[in-house]
């Protein structure tokens, strides 16, 4: 490229850069931005309405699973790699976090960090062989590994080391104060979402999406597919690990059940309900799921059954999830209310 032609593009780019500074401001003026802010303010105010540990607990569960679902959505939506074993990272981090808190007396946040990093290590461990291949291998390999983890942790032979069907119990909660616990989870959720969305919009996010759209083309553009897929996989494993560690603390223990395909299914249901590649759709899906699950709290199998049907219908008839259509409806109503 000659220097002359380079200077030609400069003006346009300046415009773009100053544009990204006011990006947040513009975003907060859009309907979607306003709605997000209203929802966040609403979530901040919930503890003013109730300090009941049980009710706040429903919100906390939904927040934890928002992070978990978003970690899956990041991988599937931005890089096109579908994981059916997201439970591996969720579960292993749950175990490691619990172990460090219970037996090594580390503070919860240090244990959570270690747990999530072990999740990342597991991501590397299965990503390296599985990513040598294209297509759906990764997803199935993760699912198989999840099952193996489930049986291994359940196994009586390994009980002295892995805790058997009881797992690890009696770990203290993050805080005795329910409201404080609530806000800590809220901060985790918002931070995780901001980071994931920011990565999606970054240059690395562009590379991820190029791999999703056309992996051969990305390779012809000089992109090391394995490296970037692995990075995406590790980021996803990290946030799944955060969710798993928080979940273990919230439930005051962890057992082999967290490795079941069911937990991977949770992530997929919530993310796909909201809409793949939206990140924030995961939150919508997660709150929807846990509020509905509350209705069937007597029969947990029934709620999974119903959500399996809902997911089949959503994927079949609204491939892109319900976030967009819901937003459009709400905007219509909003405009109507404002008399536009």
């Amino acid at each position: 490229m000659s220097a002359k032609s380079l200077s030609k593009g400069k003006g346009r780019v300046k415009k773009k850069l100053s544009g990204s500074k006011s990006y947040l401001l513009n975003w907060s003026k859009t309907f979607r931005g306003r709605l997000t802010i209203i929802c966040l303010i609403g979530l901040c105010l919930i503890p003013l309405l109730t300090q009941n540990r049980y009710y706040l607990g429903i919100f906390i569960t939904a927040m934890i699973f928002s992070i978990f679902a978003a970690s899956w959505d990041f991988l599937a939506g931005f890089t096109g790699q579908v994981s059916f074993g997201q439970a591996i990272f969720f579960g292993i981090s749950g175990y490691i976090t619990s172990y460090f808190i219970r037996y090594l007396y580390l503070p919860w946040w240090a244990s959570l960090l270690i747990g999530s990093l072990v999740g990342v290590a597991f991501g590397l461990l299965i990503g390296i062989p599985a990513l040598r291949l294209k297509g759906p291998y990764l997803g199935l390999a993760t699912m198989v590994l999840g099952l193996i983890m489930f049986y291994t942790f359940l196994n009586v032979k390994f009980e002295p080391w892995l805790g058997g069907s009881e797992g690890i119990s009696k770990i203290p909660q993050i805080s005795r104060n329910a409201v404080e616990t609530y806000y800590i989870h809220l901060i985790f959720m918002i931070t995780s979402f901001l980071i994931l969305i920011w990565i999606g919009k970054s240059k690395m996010g562009t590379v991820f999406k190029s791999i999703r759209d056309d992996d051969i083309g990305a390779e012809a553009s000089g992109i090391n597919l394995t490296k970037y897929k692995l990075i995406a996989f590790m980021i996803s494993a990290f946030f799944a690990g955060i969710a798993g560690g928080l979940f273990a603390m919230h439930n005051r223990g962890v057992n082999p059940g967290v490795f079941q395909p069911l937990y991977s299914f949770y992530a997929i249901v919530m993310a796909s309900l909201g809409g793949i590649a939206t990140i924030s759709g995961s939150a919508l899906g997660s709150y929807f799921f846990w509020f509905a699950a509350e209705l069937f709290s007597e029969w947990p199998d029934v709620s999974v059954f119903i959500f399996a049907i809902i997911l089949i219908l959503v994927i079949r008839f609204a491939e892109h999830g319900i976030l967009k259509p819901v937003l459009e409806r709400l905007k219509d109503i909003w405009d109507l209310v404002l008399g536009k």
Partner: peptide, 20 residues
């Protein structure tokens, strides 16, 4: 991606159907 998700859900549907 949609095929993977929908067949995975179908597997769950049957598993839960039997449980329920």
């Amino acid at each position: 991606v949609a095929i993977l998700i929908i067949t995975f859900s179908l597997g769950f549907f049957v598993e839960q159907f039997i449980k329920v």
